[in-house]
Design a binder for these strands. Structure first.
Lengths: 244, 244
DNA sequence: ATCCGGATGAATGTATACATGGTTCATTAT
DNA sequence: ATAATGAACCATGTATACATTCATCCGGAT
């Protein structure tokens, strides 16, 4: 997200606090005080304030009425809604791509990514290249949004997607390479194909609803983790922040 | 939005800068420098920085890679997209209200606002209480979002709606009380009624698409202003910021 | 002539001292 | 005993001096 090279205290604090919040170090609702944080991170209050301001922008912190910040609380229902919201927004992107903007060149690029994704699957249903898939999947979703041709929509999708558990890659980290998720990828890839086809034939409504359904794979994976395999919670980016 | 009473320099700067940006004092793309602004507003750089940070959160400023802020540029297409986005989000709120959450008590409140809105119309088609309507309309839209039962969605709608020209009240300011807009209110009110009915009968899809179409009234009004009556641009909140 | 390198200046980044405001607790007056 | 008052503390708000960084330009060497 940010450059790893030369950095400022603000960026260091931003990344460190983000990491700790997503790691669940601060339960939702915890108030973050400037002075102790400044002492902990060995910097002054100024960059701390700036970093917290940006974390509020990202949706990880809430501002209190009379100053100060608290860690935002997320329930399971909130995460499900965030995923549903992503589905709605990506669905809109897909619809707009179909209705307005998709050019032959753009469709070509989409199909190119699609073929690379296809190449991730082996003959055995359980054989998936879990190294290459996540990055290509991210490319596909980014490209989809680009093809919508709407800068406003792109911005809002990037925003909504900044909460890690709402990202299209939420269940694709290396640590969640388990059978259930791996098998869901076959369904996901079929949806990718259908999405590209719908956009190519200008079927806006079809594209919109395939994208929504596509996001619901994440919903199913989330429900699986929470209800049937809670020890995986720490493996999914941001889920440690849950409940409070 | 903020309290008008006791205030801090940060809030004063926030409101003043917001006012100037929406007033078109800074063309889109203008970089805002801390030092001159601090001199202009007679305060130090610290609250200026804080205010700009919040304006970036509101979507009125963009952060530059290496520090600093520029006024965000909006084209007509961007504003149209922002309106379409609001339609999609309010549509989702309406659908969720229908599918999940609408209680008899909630529907009761919605119908109550609906009746008050009805009372704004006289027997003559051109006779509308332009004093009472905007506030009631805002109430209706707020209530709709509440009925969705989704805090996440509510938050994002409030965000998307903070750009004044994307707000459901964009064309309802006292200064835009002209025939074309006044007449669109009859259509709008019919859509309000249909929306409430669809939610009450759990017709999620119907509710969703009525809400989308409802937002498109704003689109039509905007196109009317831009193409046929440009001198009205300054009357619509935020539109002065356009084009760049 | 061109390219490299350091000086210069303008802008943001950072630390810190001090101001302010709100909350809590103790003290006093009723 | 209770309510009002105020003092002390704690947290954020603000000003300001200084640091840093990036871009630009000028000068000199090749």
């Amino acid at each position: 997200m940010e450059e790893t090279g030369r950095t400022t205290h603000t960026l260091a604090a931003l990344m460190e606090l983000r990491k700790r919040i997503l790691n669940g170090d601060f339960p939702g609702g915890t108030r973050l005080f400037e002075v102790p944080l400044a002492e902990t991170l060995q910097i002054s209050r100024t960059p701390i304030r700036e970093a917290m301001s940006r974390l509020a922008e990202e949706g990880l912190l809430d501002r209190l009425t009379n100053g100060g910040f608290v860690v935002r609380s997320f329930t399971l229902a909130d995460v499900l809604d965030a995923i549903e919201l992503r589905g709605v927004l990506e669905g809109t992107a897909a619809r707009l791509a179909a209705e307005r903007s998709a050019t032959p060149a753009g469709l070509e690029r989409l199909n190119h990514v699609l073929l690379q994704l296809d190449a991730c699957f082996g003959r055995d249903a359980n054989e998936v290249d879990f190294e290459a898939y996540p990055n290509l999947n991210a490319q596909f979703h980014t490209l989809l949004v680009t093809l919508s041709g709407s800068a406003v929509l792109q911005r809002e999708i990037e925003r909504a997607t900044r909460l890690p558990f709402a990202s299209p890659s939420a269940f694709l980290s290396g640590r969640t390479n388990i059978d259930v998720f791996r098998q869901s990828l076959h369904v996901a890839q079929e949806q990718h194909r259908a999405l590209a086809a719908a956009i190519a034939s200008r079927e806006g409504t079809r594209a919109e609803f395939i994208a929504r359904e596509h996001a619901r794979i994440a919903r199913r994976n989330l429900e699986y983790v929470m209800l049937e395999n809670p020890e995986l919670i720490i493996s999914v980016p941001g889920l440690a922040l849950l409940n409070s």
